[in-house]
Design a protein around this nucleic acid. Structure first.
Lengths: 150, 150
DNA sequence: TTCAGTGCAAAAACTTTGCAGGAGG
DNA sequence: CCTCCTGCAAAGTTTTTGCACTGAA
């Protein structure tokens, strides 16, 4: 099943289950979110949709991203600059991030040991984990690491 | 050496080295920051200082927290609510956080394995790490976990 | 003396909210 | 038909910036 169709179905099911209404605007946001590549801010998405002649409003974008987060189609990320970033997470492996504090480049990595630590610590401290975020900050050693400002 | 004295010295040395001026306001912010307990936001600190009759300005608080961060006296934390939190880090062991998404409670934990993962991943991907953040989100199992909103 | 640092207020950046009209169930 | 959702704009929050003055070196 193509990704977009699957996401569509998942979102629709979620909306029904959670007694949210099914509106064209919500699916418009869903598709725009899946079209973004990599990480994007809520406002980025709004601007991008607006420049594609959409009639959407800011409030709807923010509201819908929250719904998409709740049903696991997008994930909210926080890279230390006080902006909520999102990324499509449907059908993607869990992964974490390396953030270059010089050029803004974000690399991804996976390590199964991290989930293991999450579970162990949570058990130990009496905590029911729903998620985690793990970001490494530093400088990438790419020779073209300059002021690339995403 | 008492903590406050040591921090004082460290900050002074840093300011000299980095060619920043040594001003009473900066030390006022330093002391106020060390007096906060646990995690605090930049604006919290400003308000707290103001209510203690300080004549400080917002700009100075923000500016000084950045300097304190650069020299390792405070650490910036991000718990997913788009507010920069700080905490005194001088003479404290590295630690990470469990955040209860229901009551806002923040617990701390340490795990030496995390630093090991950071180093390995960085080496593997060609990255020079300067720090990391590791937050686990979930619900604490305390029976009094309600809407405690810090 | 000189210029980085300060206080103040205004602007900026991101997000949330209030309201009236409109459409989904 | 009853709400929930939408668009719009305004307000809210947190942080940054511009400017003229001050004080550290």
């Amino acid at each position: 099943m193509p990704l977009i169709k699957e996401a569509h179905k998942k979102f629709k099911d979620y909306l029904k289950t959670a007694k949210h209404r099914i509106t064209p605007e919500r699916f418009e946001v869903l598709e725009a979110a899946l079209n973004q590549d990599g990480h994007f801010g809520a406002d980025d998405l709004y601007v991008s949709m607006k420049s594609n002649k959409s009639n959407i409003s800011r409030a709807t974008v923010y509201n819908t991203l929250e719904l998409l987060e709740q049903c696991g189609i997008v994930a909210r990320r926080n890279f230390g600059d006080n902006i909520s970033r999102f990324e499509a997470s449907i059908n993607r492996k869990n992964h974490d991030h390396l953030i270059c504090t010089n050029c803004g480049e974000i690399k991804e990595f996976t390590s199964p040991r991290i989930q293991k630590i999450v579970d162990e610590i949570s058990l130990e401290l009496g905590f029911d984990p729903t998620g985690y975020s793990f970001n490494i900050f530093g400088r990438c050693t790419d020779k073209n690491c300059k002021h690339k400002h995403e």
